[in-house]
Simulated scan of single mutants.
Amino acid sequence: MTIRKTQRPTARKNQHELLLEVRNASVSFDMDRGTSKVLDDVSIDIYRDEIIGVVGESGSGKSMFASALLDAVVEPGVLSGEVIYHPPDGEPYNIRKLSDRDLKRFRWEEISMVFQGAMDSFNPTMTIGEHFEETLYAHDYELEAGMEHGRTLLKDLYLDPDRVLESYPHQLSGGMAQRALIALSLLLKPNVLVMDEPTAALDLLMQRSITSLLSKLHEEYDITIVFITHDLPLVADLADRLAVMYAFQFVEVGPCHDVLKDAAHPYTRALLKAVPNLAAALDEMQPIEGDSPDPVDVPIGCSYHSRCPLANEQCVETQPAFRNVSDRHRAACHHWSEAREVLPYTLSNETPEVMFDDAK
């Protein structure tokens, strides 16, 4: 895995100020063959002004976690647990107890979401400008001031506001449409931006461009970003923290530097070893053998035990609790301290040493 050396900002003043608490969140679907649990008792804290990357294989529960943050799980899915929001001023509240009207306001004004395919998010019969106006009208925002802010956002994303606002979605390239969607999601100045695989349909150059723009927007607008992706190298250039998801649960959470340089969970180490790496010999890069658990039949113990070379009877019978690996770095594994020797991996760098801001 290649990690580019990037200029990272100094420690942010709000980096330890709690913004979102997710407590015991689960999402389940009733099926003919049983109950499918696609998010399983997840708990995590998200802090103001941070960028947290949520990574894992396809089908690991990342998108359901994103939907849970907005209480936007579609029926017949059932969300349980708590999602507690800490506004900049005022008392914390559980968004799952909001009225439909308040939840509608919350989803755009406090937390907004960018989905994977911009074309699927826009109404093809409306211009981009009409999407902006409709959003402002729906939330009783002053139209002229709101559209001026929208134009500024489009400029910040290196788009021509006049051309984009007058265009229909199909008249924009994939990269332009995705940037227009990001601008729309920021129109009402939310505190949190949740991005669910926002660059998956774009080429590598455009992916890098989008992440660079996100970093710029993050600093300019002091916004918290939850960046959900299966692309570990992509988010490594952007994130302050990484949260690794496997089988509908988080298995490792910590500062980006710590997780990349010294991953503690066998799954994280295997994931890093499977990423293409120009510095490693071909036989050192290995796919993760086996399959992820069936959501209808998740193992009782550690959900990774059937694919893990360290697994023993304890792993089969007992679900591991999170252990403190270091300051702010935790992993849910019975044998995390042994993983370094059993599952080595190599990180390649474009410079002799990759430096990260220790404050992250």
Rank of each mutant, 00 (worst) to 15 (best):
M1D: 05
I3A: 02
T6S: 10
K13I: 13
N24P: 10
V27N: 04
D30H: 12
G34Q: 02
L39G: 01
Y47E: 06
I52M: 14
S67I: 03
E75V: 13
V78L: 10
I84R: 11
H86L: 08
G90Y: 08
R96L: 15
D102P: 12
I111K: 10
H139C: 06
G146N: 09
H149Y: 13
G150Q: 04
L159H: 03
D160E: 10
P161G: 04
E166N: 14
Y168D: 01
R179F: 05
A180M: 03
S185V: 04
L188F: 07
V194Q: 02
A200D: 06
D203H: 09
M206N: 11
M206S: 10
M206V: 15
S212R: 14
L213Q: 10
K216L: 10
I223D: 01
V226G: 01
L234I: 06
D237S: 12
E252A: 04
V253L: 02
G254F: 02
C256T: 11
A264L: 03
H265W: 00
R269W: 00
A270D: 00
A270M: 05
P276V: 00
L310G: 11
N312P: 05
N312E: 13
N324T: 15
V325K: 08
A331P: 11
V342D: 02
F356T: 09
D357I: 14
